[in-house]
Design a protein around this nucleic acid. Structure first.
Lengths: 190, 190
DNA sequence: CGGTCTCTTGACGGAGTTCAAAGCTAGTGG
DNA sequence: CCACTAGCTTTGAACTCCGTCAAGAGACCG
């Protein structure tokens, strides 16, 4: 319990065992069944989630009524709609479990208290967000620089294990094209 | 001097006048001429830049040899290649001034000392990065959800003043299409 | 002024979408 | 543990958005 989170925090900042015991006062554990929703479009996003086990997806519904996946959340990754979370306004996203999952969740109202109790958590999140933003810059470079075919090859080459965990149509949605075209690419590349 | 930066910091955390006087010990001011480079592909990114005046662009060169703009940096915005900055590895990006600019720059080696001297700066950057990441999530939603035409209309509608500051071909590059197609869109929408 | 950027125009081509239908797979209940 | 069904994946044909290429017209700076 809390072990995945504690391990992750200790990769970036110091945290004594005594301090780690304080975490449950500010961060909850939620067990999520496959297909359950952690956030629905139109709601105010109350939680910032850390994935301990399992896999989440974040998506929105476009004007044609199809789901558009923008992010996956896997083990050791923080996921939330940060615009909605930060401003406590209605979200334009959905977050759903695509496997049974165990997540650690910080409520919006408890965030400030956590930073007061454990100031190094402020530092931890500074580092986490900086790295997440850095990863985004790289992702955007690929998105713009390469064709959809090249993006597919790059992604499957980089995360072969992950690709097998999710249905093809979700991969297609994440990469920004149709399941039909993905099928064509798969045939082409044996 | 330092006023734009101090004002920005004070939007998010407390900073006394005495503390503000410490900033020049850790953060430098650079005056940049139009077209000058702040970072070139292949270099290690040493600096994290805050734009006080002027406008920067971040771009990479794709395999066809054309420039692909991924971000602009305008007043009150932090800009850097955070992957290269964080890991001190070779960058895949260029950063260039597209107007004469005045920027505040934190060197990689001074970052830790700044956070020790002014712990609230850690909190400030946590907030800055969280908001930048939130803005990215929204940008990605638009990128995937809408056609290039809709993206063009949305961007020009949202930032009419900014669009007039930059050449058309840079706008086309940022939005992910060709100057020729942008020209077509402009004609179509009077 | 003259030359180099920048923007426009139009013809053509191709990457990727849409639609419809058929084949598969996996979960569920009996 | 099997059978049935709903959801997932594949196929193929028609179509369309947008890129490429080439050439000309402005616009800006020295």
């Amino acid at each position: 319990m809390y072990q995945e989170l504690i391990d992750h925090i200790r990769k970036f900042v110091a945290l004594t065992d005594a301090e780690a015991e304080v975490l449950p006062g500010y961060i909850q554990v939620h067990s999520i069944k496959k297909k359950a929703y952690l956030l629905k479009e139109g709601q105010v996003c109350r939680w910032n989630y850390f994935v301990g086990k399992g896999c989440l997806r974040m998506f929105c519904i476009n004007e044609k009524g199809t789901e558009q996946i923008t992010q996956f959340g896997i083990e050791n990754w923080w996921l939330s709609d940060y615009m909605s979370f930060d401003r406590q306004t209605a979200s334009g996203f959905n977050i759903q479990a695509i496997e049974d999952a165990e997540v650690y969740a910080i409520a919006y109202e408890q965030q400030a208290a956590l930073f007061t109790a454990l100031p190094q958590m402020e530092s931890y999140f500074r580092i986490v967000f900086q790295k997440a933003y850095a990863a985004w810059q790289v992702r955007l470079k690929y998105l713009y620089d390469f064709s959809k075919e090249e993006n597919y090859l790059h992604f499957t080459g980089s995360f072969p294990g992950f690709v097998q965990r999710i249905p093809q149509y979700m991969l297609a949605s994440y990469l920004g094209f149709t399941p039909e075209y993905l099928s064509e690419l798969r045939k082409k590349h044996t």
